Simulated scan of single mutants.
Amino acid sequence: MSAAAGDIAELARLGSSTVYEARGRRGLVEQRFQRLLPGSRVAGPARTVLCAQNDNRGVHELVSRLQPGEIAVLTMPEPEPVALIGDLLVTQLKERGAAGVLVDGAVRDLDELVGMGVPIWARWVHARGAAKDRRGTVDAPVRVGGATIRTGDVVVLDGDCVVVVEAEEVAAAVTLAQARERKEEASRRTYLAGAISYDLYGFRAQDQGEE
Rank of each mutant, 00 (worst) to 15 (best):
G100F: 02
D55T: 00
V118S: 06
R96K: 13
L14P: 05
A72H: 02
D133R: 13
K94E: 14
E10G: 00
L66M: 06
G24P: 03
D111F: 05
E61M: 09
R135A: 06
L28Y: 02
R180V: 04
M76S: 09
I85S: 14
Q34H: 10
H126D: 12
L93E: 00
I8V: 13
G44K: 05
D133W: 06
R188G: 02
S16C: 00
E210P: 08
A186K: 11
A127C: 10
L74H: 02
A130C: 11
V144W: 05
V162I: 13
S40A: 12
D160V: 01
A167I: 02
V163K: 07
G27M: 02
V163R: 03
Q208L: 10
G86Y: 06
A98N: 13
D87E: 11
A9C: 05
P141H: 04
G86E: 09
P77H: 11
A193V: 08
S187G: 12
H60N: 13
V73G: 03
V63I: 15
D158G: 09
T18D: 11
G159V: 08
G209E: 08
P81F: 10
E30G: 12
L84F: 01
I8F: 01
S197M: 06
T75C: 10
A205Q: 13
A171R: 11
T175S: 14
E211Q: 12
L36F: 10
A205P: 10
A186P: 01
A186H: 15
G145R: 09
V107R: 12
V144P: 08
A179V: 06
A106W: 07
R134L: 15
P119Q: 13
A179P: 01
N54R: 05
A130E: 13
A98I: 14
T151D: 00
R180Q: 11
T91R: 10
R204L: 07
H60F: 08
A167T: 09
L62R: 03
L11I: 08
S40M: 09
E169V: 09
V142A: 08
E95R: 05
T148M: 04
A140N: 00
A177Y: 02
R13L: 05
V165Q: 07
A193E: 15
P45C: 10
G24R: 07
V138K: 03
E80W: 15
A195I: 03
P68A: 11
A131T: 11
L89T: 15
S197Y: 05
R25N: 09
V170W: 08
V63M: 01
R135W: 02
